[in-house]
């Protein structure tokens, strides 16, 4: 038996999540004495495909045709389920990315599989019964989810499992099959992607700012700080509601839940809904002029002070550190 992993690419380059899910699958394969088969969909060159060997993929299957150059969840789900059947895979692993969320439930439904959505742990395995941890109540709690079907689909949260090298040599195969026409009935008209920006859900460092910044014209220093750190920018709900920043930057219970290594909150008081979205960050830094701001209660490091004075100093200090 093998574990099947679906790996995502952007314009032919694997995403960080691709290496995360292969590393994660390899760790499960070691627990269950299995092998890892990776499935890539869309055009990815052989040189890029073989990178997956480094993380433990023993077989790499590429499904590449013009019809598949853009993500269509229905067509991709068809291929993943089809390959799972061909390979006799009983465990299918993918990233809980924006695309993964549209894919995993369809794959699980096709295979009548139990689905762990947004797993953040390795499974505890007792025969056919696998228990995984996922976040619940928008990261205000964790749930232990027990999967009780012979076929299992696991979607792994971004940044929940560290990439681990585990070099093997892989065989490369291609998948060729007709995709049912109905599965291709969505037309992609336009893809807009800011190539110079770090993607928020996958970011290892996030610089986030709130109403304390007083207006959208003051975001220059936030972007500069993010730039120095190689970080993604984010914001609180009042800021996106006021259209100072796009909704895609809103972190919190009704926005994006992030789990970076470092979350820097600037001028955000720390309402319970915002804290829910950041509570699984490894290290939290809070900069706020109000010493009573609730955010300080969940922070690891804090500076009580005016953002307009502290942030430029922090940028200078970081540039000095990076320059060393």
């Amino acid at each position: 038996m093998s574990l099947l992993v679906y790996v995502e690419n952007t314009d032919g380059k694997f995403k960080k999540s691709a290496f995360e899910v292969v590393s994660y699958a390899k760790a499960i394969a070691a627990l269950t004495n299995n092998t890892v088969t990776a499935l890539s969909i869309g055009h990815v060159a052989a040189e890029e495909l073989t990178k997956l060997q480094k993380y433990g993929a023993e077989k790499i299957i590429s499904a590449d045709s013009n019809q598949l150059s853009n993500f269509i969840n229905r067509a991709y789900a068809h291929i993943i389920a089809d390959v799972a059947k061909q390979q006799g895979a009983q465990v299918i692993i993918l990233s809980n990315s924006f695309s993964g969320k549209g894919l995993a439930p369809r794959v699980a439904t096709k295979l009548d599989a139990a689905l762990a959505d947004g797993a953040i742990s390795l499974p505890e395995i007792q025969g056919d019964n696998w228990t995984l941890t996922k976040s619940a109540f928008s990261a205000k709690a964790f749930a232990k989810l027990s999967l009780q079907a012979p076929i299992k689909v696991i979607s792994l949260n971004p940044n929940a499992f560290e990439v681990q090298e585990n070099e093997v040599s892989a065989q490369l195969e291609t998948y060729e099959s007709q995709i049912p026409a109905a599965d291709l009935g969505v037309l992609i008209k336009e893809v807009v992607r800011a190539t110079d920006k770090v993607s928020l859900p996958e970011a290892e460092i996030v610089v986030s700012a709130g109403r304390g910044l007083k207006g959208p014209e003051n975001w220059g220093m936030i972007e500069e700080l993010a730039d120095v750190l190689g970080a993604a920018t984010a914001c609180s709900k009042p800021v996106s509601d006021a259209d100072w920043r796009p909704h895609s930057e809103h972190v919190g219970q009704t926005g994006i839940v992030v789990s970076p290594n470092l979350y820097i909150a600037i001028g955000i008081s720390g309402a319970i809904q915002h804290l829910a979205g950041v509570s699984s960050s490894k290290t939290i830094v809070v900069i706020n002029k109000d010493p009573e701001a609730p955010f300080f209660k969940v922070a690891d490091y804090g500076i009580v002070g005016d953002a307009f004075e502290i942030v430029p100093q922090l940028i200078t200090a970081l540039k000095a550190y990076k320059g060393q």
Binding site: T133, A136, K144, F296, Q313
Partner: peptide, 29 residues
């Protein structure tokens, strides 16, 4: 059902915040 939540946990509280003097920002770095 094919799956079931068998237990919940609440996140472990973080340790106390370490405050850095606003006059010494490089200490944060």
């Amino acid at each position: 059902s094919l799956s079931e939540i068998i237990a919940y946990e609440t996140p472990a509280p973080r340790g106390k915040v370490t405050l850095v003097d606003p006059g010494n920002v490089s200490q944060l770095v």
